[in-house]
């Protein structure tokens, strides 16, 4: 059964402006998370009732790493939690990425969409796949060491040109030749994912995108976080939290 567990906060520190890394120690025997899944972080302050759904950046044994951006009062509260604190989180939720059996994997991340690709990189590496990461940042870089460790090749783009390619991830990829057997796993802002959809369609590359939406429960009960897919010529609605957050990039309707 899925459940809400009490984890112990081991680390919680800034990686870049407004970007924080939280390492949680889980009780023994908790279900390991797959790349692309997320956990609900429950804040329990009486005012902010809804859980914050945060993607899994890395899980090694009973150490769960979440990298999140402070965007409002709830995530600011998360950033103020001190090591040693008890943090209530859910079991891993959502479907996660599906890695190919062989060939090349391209991890395309933008901004706070970069963190879940760390776990994907390590899982792909463990499967013996050739892993390339193309990561876009506004300015400050984060999680570089992890990608350098897990990937065969790493390309960086920054919007301000302070590091790597001057521009965004899709512009960066335009300049590269990709092997035909490349599977693209992406997470980032909607404009980036929309551009990637066209990019992959033109090259006939399979694309998986991880979507973000304002969630209520995070486990599929409230139907607050739907997205639209175009499937067999008809629009269908799927819950981002339960049916996703990872969807076939060729099917997603970006509005």
């Amino acid at each position: 059964m899925k459940r809400v567990i009490a984890a112990r906060l081991a680390e919680n520190a800034g990686l870049a402006p407004e970007i924080f890394r939280m390492v949680l120690r889980l009780p023994e025997g908790e279900m390991p998370a797959r790349a692309g899944q997320f956990v609900n972080v429950y804040l329990e302050d009486g005012a902010h009732l809804l859980p914050r759904p945060i993607s899994v950046c890395r899980q090694e044994g009973n150490a769960l790493t979440l990298v999140y951006r402070v965007i409002g009062a709830g995530t600011r509260r998360m950033a103020h939690l001190q090591p040693g604190a008890e943090v209530r989180i859910s079991s891993p939720l959502g479907n996660g990425y599906t890695l190919p059996e062989r060939g090349h994997v391209l991890l395309a991340g933008g901004g706070v969409g970069v963190p879940p690709l760390v776990q994907a990189a390590y899982e792909a590496k463990a499967k013996g796949l050739h892993v390339t990461a193309a990561l876009g940042y506004r300015d400050a870089l984060f999680l570089q060491r992890e990608f350098a460790d897990a990937c065969d090749a790493l390309a960086i783009a920054t919007e301000d040109g302070s590091a790597g390619f001057h521009g965004n991830v899709v512009q960066l990829l335009m300049a590269q030749a990709l092997p035909e057997d490349t599977a693209v796993l992406a997470c980032g802002p909607k404009p980036m994912l929309r551009a990637l959809q066209a990019f992959c369609a033109a090259r006939k590359l399979p694309l998986q995108v991880s979507l973000e939406e304002r969630m209520g429960c995070g486990y599929g009960a409230c139907v607050g976080c739907v997205c639209k897919l175009l499937r067999n010529g008809a629009i269908v609605q799927k819950r981002v939290c339960k049916d996703g957050p990872v969807f076939d990039g060729s099917e997603v309707v970006f509005e």
Binding site: A47, L50, M215, C222, V223, C225, V226
Partner: peptide, 16 residues
């Protein structure tokens, strides 16, 4: 149903 966002948090509650 309605378009998203469908959920907003409020003090001690939520809007849907």
């Amino acid at each position: 149903g309605n378009p998203t966002p469908r959920i907003a948090e409020t003090y001690g509650g939520m809007l849907n």
